[in-house]
Amino acid sequence: MARIIVVTSGKGGVGKTTTSAAIAMGLAKRGHKTAVIDFDVGLRNLDLILGCERRVVYDFINVINGEASLNQALIRDKNCNLLYILPASQTRDKDALTHEGVGKVLDELSKDFGYIVCDSPAGIEKGANLALYFADDAFVVTNPEISSVRDSDRMLGILSSKSRRAERNEEPIKEYLLLTRYDADRVKLGEMLSLEDVQEILSLELLGIIPESKSVLSASNAGIPVILDEKSEAGQAYADVVARYLGEKLPHRFIDGKQGFLRRLFGGRK
């Protein structure tokens, strides 16, 4: 049985697709057969970030409608043969997603994949709801600014009430925080919320801080997930995130605070 991860945020533009591509690639690189699904029907982006846009023949909606088989629609990544992409349809909209259809695709994928990463669209409408409904784990992507934090908080409410696990009264979705586009210098100047500020509101297990980095944009434009850029801070940060998710204990980097601050922050936390 695959573990289903939803990458979600509520707010747009915080780095969901970048994160989905990076962690899916990271999991595959570590030897786990991974599928990443673009739930942003009508605004297809994941294929661009993963550099497979010219190989899209069939898409998620075709599979849901029975117009193509899952194997026909899945695209194998050119950098890693354990990573498969299920692209969204660009010509349809979110209404094309159905509860049963998504459930069926995930069930089928679960049979021979280790991890399924669901790249959620922004908002709290149908696409986002279906992306999180079947999830086991949630990566909540948040930028250090108040509107993003509030939207993430709203998303956490939905995760705890509108998922399959919540409806079946099972163990709730495991929620993790991913703080992206973090600029330690601006935090010091008081222009950006600090990790501490964000955690005061969200109080989630922190999976990692992704520093604001020029390499993210250039990697996106080149169609290579930033995690493959091992020299960049963002790439290293995503590699840390994947390692922590898989159970490794790594100290948090890129907070760039004093040691005392760090100890205060993590010493008291379980």
Binding site: R150, D153, R154, L156, G157, I158, S160, S161
Partner: peptide
């Protein structure tokens, strides 16, 4: 016992 999130 759980946190009450925004919108709930």
């Amino acid at each position: 016992t759980q946190p009450i999130r925004s919108g709930q």
